[in-house]
């Protein structure tokens, strides 16, 4: 008897049975997943809070400031990474450029720029 072949056949049949799980069970599984993802976000925030607390007990005031700044930068990076899963979109980059004065506000009055922005 071929173990791999047998295992594959059993797997096919078990996979078919997954389609028979009732809607109420599937809803509970989805809720469980969403709760778990929320818990992960919370635990990450808690970790950052602990790091900030630790920074308050670091050596010199300059070291404390450096640790706190690094923690906040790391937190910002983590939030962006988890929510977006990659680089920020171009519309976000335009808003950032406006906020840091790399892009003049007058650009928004330019119809060509508006149509380019709308196409993004």
């Amino acid at each position: 008897m071929n173990e791999l072949h047998f295992g594959g056949r059993v797997r096919e049949l078990l996979d078919r049975r997954l389609e028979d799980i009732g809607a109420d069970r599937l809803a509970r599984l989805r809720q469980a997943r969403e709760r778990a993802l929320l818990a992960r976000r919370r635990s990450a925030v808690t970790g950052i809070g602990h790091a900030l607390l630790l920074s308050a007990h670091a050596g010199t005031p300059r070291a404390r400031l450096a640790v706190a700044a690094c923690t906040l930068l790391l937190a910002a990076w983590l939030v962006a990474w988890w929510h977006v899963g990659g680089p920020l979109d171009e519309a976000g980059e335009v808003e950032t450029a406006l906020l840091i004065d790399d892009l003049p506000v007058e650009a928004l009055l330019d119809s060509g720029f508006q149509s380019w922005l709308a196409s993004r």
């Binding site: 049975r17 989805r30 778990a36 976000r41 899963g85």
Partner: peptide, 28 residues
């Protein structure tokens, strides 16, 4: 693992995990 990867992983495994536990415990 990103949040998306964790979410996709859990979504891919949840039904099999449920069945696996139910086979072992006979209690859904």
């Amino acid at each position: 693992a990103t949040q998306r990867e964790l979410s996709d992983f859990l979504a891919s495994v949840e039904r099999r995990a449920f069945r696996h536990a139910a086979y072992a415990l006979r209690d859904e």
